[in-house]
């Protein structure tokens, strides 16, 4: 039976892990990414995501070196998102050892990139990340780390991203991200009901129950969490055992 995936996400800046309490507001360093990746792998993480929030051009090389070091010792799927602007950037991270690339701003501003990437590397390599904010009774897409409105409705954008070749969608609720109140289940439910590609829930998880809720109530295929693992409130293994008790199929 196909299990639901639990995916720790690490925000990486200049080759180091950072974690925010509020949306994209960086806090002090929390560790070496590879050490953390290894630990999460041992705890039973199903995949890993590096979100590169490095601003400088010089810092961009660091993520490639980091991806390569990670792929040298951790044999589970690795997604790299953040700062991927074109197929050349995709090629660089995939060549360095990543399995998937996540695109957000570049996809919303140039949707053709989804198709271009899918045709070149296969849909399974292209994760479209959607940052959504609830406004006026609907969810709207934001880009540039949540700073700019994209004037797109999130559910429609999800459908379009799939049609253009996305192999998976990473759906983040900006309203919930960093709050610990749980995922926006309504948003996830709407998107899961609309698309047929796998959906990763993101934004707001603080307990194993939140993870199980996203699967059971919204139909998510995978759940992303950062702080709850990062600060050691739960190990990935604890979260998965708790999900299994709720009846969610997980790999243990």
């Amino acid at each position: 039976m196909l299990t639901k995936r639990v995916i720790p996400c690490m925000d990486v800046r200049d080759g180091k892990v950072v974690k925010n309490l509020r949306y994209f507001t960086a806090l002090p360093d929390a560790g070496d990414p590879v050490t953390l990746a290894r630990a999460y792998n041992e705890q039973g993480a199903d995949e890993l995501i590096y979100l590169d929030i490095t601003a400088s051009v010089e810092g961009r090389g660091l993520i490639l070196e980091l991806v390569s070091r990670t792929a040298d010792e951790v044999f589970i799927p690795l997604t790299v998102a953040g700062g991927i602007r074109n197929v050349g950037d995709m090629q660089s991270v995939l060549h360095a050892g990543a399995d998937k690339t996540g695109i957000n701003t570049s996809a919303a501003t140039n949707p053709g990139l989804i198709t271009e990437g899918a045709e070149r590397f296969g849909s399974q390599c292209i994760v479209v990340a959607i940052d959504a904010k609830r406004e006026d009774g609907d969810w709207w897409v934001y880009t540039h780390g949540g700073r700019k409105p994209a004037s797109r409705r999130a559910v429609e954008w999800a459908r379009e991203a799939q049609e253009r070749g996305a192999g998976e969608l990473l759906v983040t609720s900006m309203d919930r991200d960093g709050t610990g109140e749980g995922y926006d289940l309504e948003l996830l439910d709407r998107i899961c009901a609309t698309v047929s590609v796998p959906v990763i829930a993101s934004g707001g998880a603080a307990t194993p129950d939140h993870l199980a809720d996203a699967v059971e109530q919204a139909g998510a295929d995978a759940v992303l969490a950062a702080s709850m693992f990062h600060y050691g409130h739960f190990t990935v293994g604890e979260a998965k055992r708790s999900m299994r008790e709720r009846g969610v199929p997980v790999r243990l």
């Binding site: 299990t3 199903d46 399974q124 796998p198």
Partner: peptide
């Protein structure tokens, strides 16, 4: 069923 078949299966 969702395609691609993606994830850990037994």
């Amino acid at each position: 069923r969702k395609v691609p078949h993606m994830g850990w299966n037994s």
